[in-house]
Simulated scan of single mutants.
Amino acid sequence: MKTASKRSTPASHIAIWGWPLVAARIAALLALVVICVPLHYAVAPFTSAKPVPRLFLRLVGTVAGLRVRSSGPQPAPRTFFLANHVSWLDIPAIAGLTGCAFVAHDGLASIGPLRWLCRLNDTVFVARHDRRSVARQVEQVREALCETGALAIFPEGTTATGTRLLPFKSSLLSAIDADAEHVPVQPIWLDYGRHVGDIAWVNDEPGLANALRILARWRPIPLTIHFLAPLEGADRADRKAMARTAREQIEAAMQRG
């Protein structure tokens, strides 16, 4: 369920001059699919790095209006990211910058074309509300880390307002609990600045309405991805310590602004 947040304008309202931009952007996104999918299959036999999905997601963000910059200590090639979650734009932004794959809830897997595109970027689907399958989900995350090198998770479990954090869920962090290979665990703060209230996907807003509203924006969407200090020592003692410390770091960064 989406968190509560007030909007001055209904999510479904799009000014008439926004629709041409929506149409142009949807056409551009379809063109990206038509170009990048064959290119991915052409390149795949020669590299395991999957550069085309990363390029595709970066371009998706650009077409949608994202203007991304980063700050802080740049991540190692093999890193487990823990990020706050504001919008579907978070995914192309992080992946386009780091080349990581994602852990996503299995609701996305029910949408055939979207599941297929997610699989091209090695997305790990988990049943968020199925406690009986947590052990298998943890194993899936471990396998994905070995195969992809970098993986991102949104431990809030859903999108929030971007001005405050929801509790962090720690169960899937068991995948790197007491990890013998010491995969870096690095928190990320996704900072949409003063635009966050317009970007956040909250209030049970339908996904299509949110996407159309974002695509109808004429102004660019600035996003700073703050790479915070990787967790070390006691902060990596177990999954709960990792979740707690990552949340504290992101919250402190948000307060500093």
Rank of each mutant, 00 (worst) to 15 (best):
S5V: 04
S5W: 10
S5P: 05
K6A: 11
S8P: 07
S8K: 14
T9N: 01
T9C: 07
P10A: 04
P10I: 01
A11P: 09
A11K: 00
S12A: 15
S12D: 11
S12W: 15
S12G: 08
S12V: 14
H13E: 10
I14M: 02
I14Y: 02
I14P: 00
A15V: 13
I16C: 13
I16L: 15
I16P: 06
W17R: 15
W17I: 15
G18L: 07
G18N: 07
W19A: 11
P20E: 13
P20Q: 13
P20A: 12
L21H: 07
V22I: 15
V22A: 09
V22T: 08
V22G: 04
A23I: 14
A24T: 11
A24R: 15
R25H: 04
R25C: 04
R25P: 03
R25T: 10
I26P: 00
I26Y: 01
I26L: 13
A28V: 11
L29S: 05
L29R: 04
L30H: 12
L30S: 12
L32W: 05
V33D: 12
V34D: 06
V34G: 05
V34H: 02
I35M: 11
V37H: 03
P38N: 12
P38Y: 07
P38M: 05
L39D: 00
L39Q: 04
L39F: 06
H40L: 12
H40F: 13
Y41E: 09
Y41D: 08
A42D: 08
A42M: 15
A44G: 09
P45I: 05
P45F: 11
P45N: 09
F46A: 09
T47C: 10
T47M: 10
T47R: 10
S48H: 14
A49G: 11
K50N: 14
K50F: 12
P51F: 06
P51R: 07
V52Y: 00
V52D: 00
R54E: 12
L55R: 05
F56V: 04
F56A: 02
F56C: 05
F56E: 00
L57C: 12
L57T: 06
L57H: 11
L57V: 04
R58M: 10
R58E: 07
R58G: 13
L59K: 11
L59T: 12
L59V: 10
V60I: 13
V60Q: 02
V60L: 03
V60N: 00
T62Y: 07
T62A: 15
T62I: 13
V63F: 05
V63H: 03
A64V: 05
A64N: 02
G65E: 02
G65I: 01
L66V: 03
L66T: 02
L66Y: 04
V68S: 02
V68Y: 02
R69E: 14
S70M: 08
S70A: 14
S70Y: 06
S71I: 06
S71L: 06
S71H: 10
G72Y: 05
P73R: 12
P73D: 11
Q74T: 13
Q74W: 10
P75Q: 01
P75C: 09
P75G: 08
P75L: 04
P75W: 01
P75V: 10
P77I: 02
P77N: 09
P77Y: 04
R78D: 12
R78Q: 14
R78E: 13
R78F: 04
T79A: 03
T79D: 00
T79L: 06
T79Q: 01
